[in-house]
């Protein structure tokens, strides 16, 4: 549980940080700038697996 299953919902909320590649695997930017915070928080909300954590 709480592990990415590559549903890709984060991609729509924070497209600069999350991407679903052609193999259905998720790629993401591990260290995002502060300016992306709102988008990433929205991505946290929509992850069905609740797999995204923001670590300060």
């Amino acid at each position: 549980m709480n592990q990415c299953q590559h549903y890709g919902q984060c991609v729509f909320e924070a497209p600069d940080n999350f991407k679903l590649n052609d193999d259905d695997k998720l790629e993401y930017v591990a260290e995002a700038p502060d300016s992306e915070r709102d988008n990433i928080e929205a991505a946290v909300d929509v992850c069905p697996m609740q797999a995204i954590r923001i670590v300060e």
Binding site: H6, Y7, L20
Partner: peptide
Amino acid sequence: LGIGMKAALL
């Protein structure tokens, strides 16, 4: 609907 497909749905 995707059956085992994800990125292809986008």
